[in-house]
Write a protein that binds this DNA or RNA. Structure first.
Lengths: 136, 136
DNA sequence: CTTGAACCTCTAGTCACTAGAGGAATTAGG
DNA sequence: CCTAATTCCTCTAGTGACTAGAGGTTCAAG
């Protein structure tokens, strides 16, 4: 049986974060020692690796909870989670590219010459944006 | 003089958010009524528009605080804020593109045929990632 | 004047962690 | 076995950028 520290070292997920995931309902220890320490099986290690990968992919904890609750053959439900998240990532990329363009404009506004700082002025100037910003 | 609701309606920033910005030191009311309501000048309205634009660009509140504290000709300090943030945005775009590629792979893993769900399996499979994920 | 809308402060919550206090359990080395 | 260091525990509270709601006051319009 593996301790929480064992899991942490083998997955790169911090100990408090593992506890947090337990609190969030993603991962339970298989049991406790007489001293109340969590002990995990190899399946728990694999579950944590799953969680970490999904988190690394930017999936919110709620979505991961849904994935975990699925039967291993439940494509009907797993697939939309992946594709919806993919759409979300694409939307965020587009939004960030808009921000990039705008910030490049702002950063280029100043040539370092004396007088009023055109970068500062550009930060205040919403009218020059090609379109409305959205939060990526 | 403008009320907090006036500012909210004219900038799209919510009333509690304006109060939050005051708490964060970004924007103070010019005064209060006898009934303790905030009143802002036109300069306050412009300040809030500045804050909103910078937030829309993804600048953290601390960076905005720095920008606000600058003299209007202080290019030496404003320019690095813009360029550093631009670099950060570019880094996030790259990270998101990596995620996009990975999610596209995962979403494509299932053709809907019977048996074990390959999307679910792919979520658990970190080894297939071209490189390590980072959080955008 | 009355009423409804807008304002106030304060507290606490969201999300995904993160940090630290105070104490207990486990492990490794002598 | 003993001891010290490491690891574990629960609990509380904090981060950043908001958001929500309770309970009360003020303002503005009819």
């Amino acid at each position: 049986m593996l301790s929480i520290g064992d899991l942490s070292r083998r997955t790169g997920v911090k100990v408090p974060t593992i506890r947090y995931y337990e609190q969030m309902g993603l991962l339970q220890a298989e049991g406790r020692t007489d001293g109340n320490q969590r002990r995990y099986s190899h399946a728990g290690l694999e579950r944590l690796a799953f969680i970490r990968h999904a988190r690394d992919l930017g999936l919110p904890i709620g979505a991961i909870r849904e994935l975990i609750a699925l039967d291993g053959s439940d494509c009907e439900k797993a697939h939309p989670i992946a594709t919806l998240h993919l759409l979300d990532i694409r939307r965020r990329i587009e939004a960030l590219r808009g921000l990039e363009a705008e910030l490049a404009r702002i950063a280029a506004a100043c040539d370092g010459s004396a007088g009023a700082c055109r970068t500062l002025a550009a930060f205040g100037d919403h009218g020059k944006c090609a379109r409305d910003h959205s939060h990526p």
